[in-house]
Amino acid sequence: MARSIGAPAIGPADGARPAGIQTTLRVNGSVRRLELDPRATLLDTLRERLGLPGTKKGCDRGECGACTVHVNGRRINACMTLAVMHDGDEIVTIEGLARGEELHAVQAAFIEHDALQCGYCTAGQIMSAVACIGEGHAGSADEIREWMSGNLCRCSCYPQIVAAVQTAAQERT
């Protein structure tokens, strides 16, 4: 539990190293209790503490989208938020998308359309695409391009990515 505001004082002002913060994250359906350095980003916590390296770190400053995960049903950049801010939150990463051996429709569409080369951006692209379709922002190729613009692909697989998202969106309806 984080200390709440009000009396007593919220932390040492004398430069002493602050203690770890007890935090409960619900990741891909399982409850994970951790003692966290308040500086740990959600991205580093998923990768380094929870053994979930599927979520990637491209820029670590909100620009590339490689770290996209879902928090309480919304897509966010895991590099731009502290893990301690997510006590009790429901988090879904790329590892939580497939049902056993059965791929999510967006994962299958990425394979079908060959929507990757090196694959570094792919987990973020897919998490973003699942949300993009869920939000109702995948009605046309133009709309997909606009609403997938937070995910960069250095290999420039954009035409294939748009086609994959379009296919997955059509399958849903």
């Binding site: 200390r3 709440s4 505001i5 919220i10 932390g11 602050p18």
Partner: peptide
């Protein structure tokens, strides 16, 4: 390093704000 705390109501949050505290 910094200490982390979660605000539970506006009045006490405003009361603890000072030069060395950053809101997130």
């Amino acid at each position: 390093p910094f200490a982390y705390a979660r605000a539970t109501d506006v009045a006490s949050a405003v009361a603890v704000l000072d030069e060395r505290t950053a809101v997130v």
